[in-house]
Amino acid sequence: MSTTAPERQGPGAGAPAAAPARSGAQPRPIRTSGWASYAGYGVVALVLALFAVLSPVFTDPANVASIINQATVTAIAGMGLAVVVIVGGDDVVEGGIDLSVGATAAVAGSVAAVLVSAGLGPAPAVLAALGVALLIGTANGVAVGLGLRPLLATLATMGIATSLDLVVSQNMKIALEGQPFTWLRDAGGLGVSGAVVVLLVVAAAFIWVFHRTRLGVNAYAVGQNPTAARVAGLNPARYRFASYLVSSGLAGVAGILLASRLSAAVPGIGTQILLDIILVAYMSTVFSRRLVITIGGTLLAALFVTALSNGMTLAGIASQWVGAVKGALILAVLTVVVLRSKAGNR
């Protein structure tokens, strides 16, 4: 592979690790400049403008608020997945991936709802829900630490968590009412829900950590070149383990927010949200000049994907098309990324 000098600057310098040998002769993505860096923003603006023209309701403040409300779940869980991919590397077969996030969110929502309806206070119920989520994360972290591929480890825990969700909820919808869940659903001020407040806090914290602190630089370094990171004195195994805990923890938070928004834990919702979570995490690369997964990009991608579903509904497009459009969207995003990285490598 022909490489240029700036790519070899070491950890955190912005060059993702060498393309893995198994997935073909992909050139390594590098820093790009010019119009291509803004292609992601351009496409997003274009699509949003299209919907604004097609449906006058789309830009209505109430509709915008509802889009933001709906985006909270995929945004928070997506950030967790983004952390795993940042730390584990972005090769999807060998690198970091957490397929259990959707099921973890579902089981966390069910646990909280079951405990609250059993008469437990909201604080212990939420703590128990997060505890279950973190247990799943621990299982992922240990399995990956022992050398299992993340794809397989989290595939297995996804099955386990899905089953746990069924066991806990007995495959029934369980109502989740009362404070603080109604606060999360309704009142956050300025027409947005409390969930949005949670999202802003989480997003601000993670954006700060991953894009402004040494810890964040180290996390990228571990994912992009573990060998160099190890030589530089970091312990990649610890970062990886922690990333799975973060991912499950955020999935647990997302699950509680989802159950609050629906006023109930709905069984089997895990697989439905998994694909959206993966979509937003990987889509964040188009918002990055260096074509890497970012926390801020994940937030933008979650807002965009939710706006897309919302806009298609408002424009009167049948719901069956939404899946096809999302699939086409991932492909478009990935094609842009691959083409841009090829162009940058010449």
């Binding site: 997935s23 999807v92 991936i97 991932i330 990935l334």
Partner: peptide, 9 residues
């Protein structure tokens, strides 16, 4: 496109 993401789409 990486196989995992292509076939997911």
């Amino acid at each position: 496109i990486p196989p995992f993401l292509a076939t997911l789409s």
